[in-house]
Simulated scan of single mutants.
Amino acid sequence: MTLLEQLEIKHAIFLAPMAGVSTPELAAEVSNQGALGSLGLGASTAEAARQQILATQALTDQPFQVNFFCHQSAALDSQTAQQWIQHLQPQFAKYGATPPEQLRCIYPSFLDNDDFLNVLLETRPKAVSFHFGIPHAHQIQALKNAGIITLVSATHLTEAQAIEAAGIDIIIAQGIEAGGHRGIFNQSFDSCIKTADLVQLLKKHCSAPVVAAGGIMIGQQAKAMLQLGADAVQLGTAFVQCKTSNANDAYRKALFNQPLTQVTASISGRPARGLINHWHTQVDAPDRPPVAAYPYAYDLGKQLHAAASQQGDHGFGAFWAGSNAAQIRELEAADLVNQLVLEMNIA
């Protein structure tokens, strides 16, 4: 059975599940065109996740994936956190704001309990993907018993082999060009391998289907990944500009006006690729202290962005974007899927 048959989709195109940007409307528009829509639910509560899945199911009867974070929840190191707060205090002061005294754990992990799993077993989406790690064995088995297809992001070969050994159905090959958070399991090691190289490596050593993700903006790039052996491609940045995404106006404008990207861990506590802004040019200095752990650092980053935005400065936004962002087009989701398919089929 091919990947398309397994997922019951027409086109080998996945919408990347972008937490904070994805919406039921965007997911449904992509799925209704024969590709695989998605919901990024890693930043949601269990009840909010449930409502978004139900809303998407009301808009489409086609398959879509949902996504959760599988990070290892870390206890906050108070000394590191205070150093990080102190480091960003001058940035807050520029906008007449004061940083918080304590940082909060704003994003739960799928691994922490079975609340998200129970939502999935109730709502039964076609597929569920995971970032930062692999679910517990009992969670994987429960999803399999429910007939839900599983996917996990891999950034290098050993992660992919662990994913396959755990019984996951599909591997997302996330290259260094990908926008948003790196899916690395262990933050002390990142191979930084390119998408094309990672696809070829995984196709050689793994038997599970492989989806190429990272820096893909146009159909010709997608076609090149398929020719390298990828079973499908996943695009996120290209869809951020769609009217049905949840991106704000500043994010949309930045995509077209300043489409240079760089990886930083300063925004959230985990390395992630985004449009170059104040984080990269003002915070990431050689004397920068260690960043507070994820997602505690993200709590501080969001508060700094809110303070700056109130003064009309959007330079501290988490404007995630992949390499080749300059190649995105101003198209609605259905038209973009159709354009990608057309480009992928050009001889």
Rank of each mutant, 00 (worst) to 15 (best):
residue 228 L to Y: 13
residue 65 Q to F: 11
residue 59 L to P: 03
residue 140 I to G: 11
residue 296 Y to T: 09
residue 29 E to I: 01
residue 18 M to F: 05
residue 239 F to R: 10
residue 254 A to D: 13
residue 223 K to P: 00
residue 311 Q to S: 13
residue 154 A to Y: 08
residue 187 Q to I: 10
residue 72 Q to D: 15
residue 185 F to K: 10
residue 292 A to D: 02
residue 323 S to G: 01
residue 77 D to F: 00
residue 83 Q to R: 15
residue 189 F to M: 11
residue 217 M to C: 12
residue 318 A to P: 00
residue 335 D to T: 06
residue 48 A to R: 04
residue 2 T to F: 04
residue 117 L to W: 07
residue 193 I to V: 14
residue 224 A to S: 14
residue 160 A to R: 03
residue 214 G to S: 02
residue 40 G to D: 06
residue 314 H to S: 14
residue 141 Q to E: 15
residue 145 N to T: 13
residue 199 V to M: 06
residue 198 L to S: 05
residue 45 T to C: 02
residue 120 L to M: 13
residue 329 R to C: 12
residue 178 A to L: 01
residue 150 T to R: 05
residue 179 G to E: 01
residue 234 Q to Y: 05
residue 343 E to C: 00
residue 62 Q to V: 06
residue 211 V to R: 01
residue 148 I to S: 09
residue 39 L to G: 01
residue 80 T to Q: 15
residue 51 Q to H: 11
residue 158 T to S: 14
residue 191 S to Y: 13
residue 78 S to E: 14
residue 292 A to R: 07
residue 23 T to H: 04
residue 12 A to L: 01
residue 328 I to G: 05
residue 71 H to N: 13
residue 156 H to F: 14
residue 35 A to D: 04
residue 254 A to I: 07
residue 54 L to T: 09
residue 170 I to L: 03
residue 166 A to L: 12
residue 214 G to W: 00
residue 113 N to K: 09
residue 82 Q to T: 14
residue 70 C to R: 11
residue 138 H to R: 13
residue 84 W to Q: 04
residue 4 L to N: 04
residue 133 G to R: 03
residue 12 A to R: 08
residue 205 H to M: 05
residue 311 Q to D: 08
residue 297 A to N: 01
residue 307 A to S: 10
residue 196 A to T: 12
residue 119 V to R: 06
residue 250 A to N: 13
residue 165 A to I: 07
residue 337 V to M: 05
residue 333 A to W: 05
residue 154 A to K: 05
residue 153 S to H: 05
residue 161 Q to I: 08
residue 325 A to I: 03
residue 183 G to Q: 11
residue 182 R to F: 12
residue 27 A to E: 00
residue 339 Q to M: 03
residue 248 N to A: 10
residue 168 I to L: 14
residue 9 I to S: 00
residue 314 H to D: 14
residue 15 L to V: 02
residue 64 F to L: 12
residue 112 D to F: 02
residue 293 A to H: 12
residue 89 Q to V: 03
residue 93 A to Q: 15
residue 79 Q to E: 15
residue 274 G to M: 00
residue 8 E to L: 10
residue 101 E to C: 05
residue 68 F to R: 12
residue 280 H to Q: 14
residue 159 E to R: 00
residue 311 Q to G: 04
residue 100 P to K: 08
residue 92 F to A: 11
residue 38 S to Y: 00
residue 158 T to I: 12
residue 137 A to H: 14
residue 132 F to H: 10
residue 205 H to Q: 15
residue 207 S to I: 08
residue 116 F to S: 07
residue 150 T to V: 07
residue 8 E to N: 15
residue 209 P to A: 08
residue 226 L to D: 06
residue 100 P to N: 07
residue 132 F to W: 08
residue 275 L to G: 07
residue 308 A to P: 09
residue 108 P to H: 12
residue 333 A to V: 01
residue 329 R to L: 14
residue 194 K to N: 14
residue 289 P to Y: 06
residue 61 D to P: 08
residue 223 K to S: 08
residue 136 H to G: 12
residue 252 R to F: 02
residue 183 G to R: 10
residue 189 F to V: 12
residue 109 S to I: 05
residue 250 A to Q: 09
residue 341 V to Q: 10
residue 310 Q to C: 09
residue 162 A to G: 13
residue 97 A to Q: 07
residue 194 K to M: 11
residue 198 L to W: 05
residue 50 R to P: 04
residue 44 S to F: 10
residue 310 Q to V: 06
residue 256 F to S: 14
residue 224 A to Q: 13
residue 191 S to T: 09
residue 158 T to G: 02
residue 48 A to P: 01
residue 235 L to P: 04
residue 198 L to N: 00
residue 269 G to V: 09
residue 319 F to A: 06
residue 178 A to D: 01
